[in-house]
Write a protein that binds this DNA or RNA. Structure first.
Lengths: 225, 225
DNA sequence: GGCAAAATGTACCAATTGTTACAAAATGAT
DNA sequence: ATCATTTTGTAACAATTGGTACATTTTGCC
């Protein structure tokens, strides 16, 4: 049996009254599967044919590298859905192997049945679309940032974004070390670039205060990439 | 009026019979808007309240940088949809300003109405979900690639992924130029690295056939990053 | 104020990648 | 088969970044 009071706390079914939820599930086929600790729920690479929602317990996703060793881990607790972004699209395979951290219950809804649900309930449809869209937008933004090749470009982009419409001066909230990690570069390399940009009279740094001396010039760094 | 013979050639409405399409649109509110050459269709930053589909003509998306100048351009011809990935989610603003390249007609469907359509027609729902999911998966994959710092790591990862559980030999379906773009590096740099990896007896390339000589070694490139 | 710890500025050299250019090889069309 | 086009291999040099080390400055705390 599904505990609807938990289900409606999930991102997907949030905002849907329990009664409505119960009515929805009476119209489709689904399964509640129980897994013991360390049971494998899905193998990475398997085709995604069901939407899984963790109803109780906790599961973990493990990346398996090419030599067969476990690499990264992400825990998924109730009542979160599992690989919701891989239900559709060209590459609808599980990117990770999922294992139960402890005794767990998972709701399994076949894709066709989930499609029916989406068409029956507007709130669910909105939830799901918002969920995968937000994810796509997040990825897109992150990618945009990484698309800048040189450290100078990254710094220029970061500073212009931070400044926004404000004045030319503002406070840095991060240390160079933190910024270096954000940009994916080493700390001395970042320091060197900051130094260069000061010599070129693009910016001025005093303690934690950054002043953009030449917004025009900073922009041209981005364009001529 | 909508020319349904064109609409059903779009990614969204593909596979839906014209008659069915006509019936669908009789149930919702929508507009067909005409734009003269160089007319602004949407401003970047505006909230996305409509799904736009180019019915005739051609439009272009222009990025506006921080100083207010146009940067990048992407052309969208009929019958492609416009910013379909930004209809939902947290940041549902247009990332670009869209302008008409020439006299154009655009179908404008308010978000609420589009939701109705999705619930009325399973094929349309599948099309749309596949569309944005594929996009998200593409972004995700690309991001993963960029997380590897050296070209060697990227190549090792790519080759091991392509090979999968198959034999050690397989056919490359992409040119070096395409791979270089996928990796975000230049073509000669990629060629050099491929050469080095052959000298180190990690791989062998003959025409389009790649043979992985040392999977172990390729793996260790990824781990010791 | 004085002191330890953290953060920053710099310097040097190695490693990696980009840039440009050109030749060889493969591909496709006639 | 031949020719034009695309793809690939390779080289030399420039530019960028990483790695390491150390001095200096700033910060936080007593």
């Amino acid at each position: 049996m599904i505990d609807y009071s938990i289900l409606v706390k999930s991102p997907l079914f949030g905002g849907i009254p329990e009664e409505e939820c119960r009515a929805l599930f009476s119209k489709i086929h689904y399964q509640v599967r129980k897994f013991e600790k360390d049971a494998i729920i899905v193998q990475g690479g398997e085709e995604v044919t069901n939407l899984f929602v963790v109803l109780s317990g906790s599961v973990r996703g493990e990346m398996i590298d090419y030599s067969g060793k476990t690499v990264k881990i992400e825990d998924i607790e109730a009542p979160r859905p599992l690989a919701a972004a891989f239900l559709f699209g060209k590459e609808n395979k599980f990117p990770v192997t999922v294992t139960a951290n402890k005794k767990s219950e998972l709701l399994a809804i076949p894709v066709v049945e989930f499609l029916k649900l989406l068409q029956l309930n507007t709130r669910l449809l909105r939830n799901y679309l918002n969920n995968i869209s937000t994810r796509a937008q997040f990825l897109s933004q992150k990618l945009h940032f990484l698309s800048f090749k040189t450290i100078k470009e990254k710094v220029a982009h970061f500073l212009l974004q931070q400044a926004g419409d404000r004045f030319h001066s503002f406070e840095l909230k991060n240390t160079q070390q933190q910024l270096a990690e954000l940009f994916g570069v080493t700390r001395p390399s970042l320091a060197r670039v900051l130094g260069e940009m000061q010599n070129e009279n693009l910016i001025k740094i005093e303690k934690k205060t950054v002043t953009l001396l030449d917004k025009q010039g900073l922009n041209s760094l981005l364009k001529n990439g």
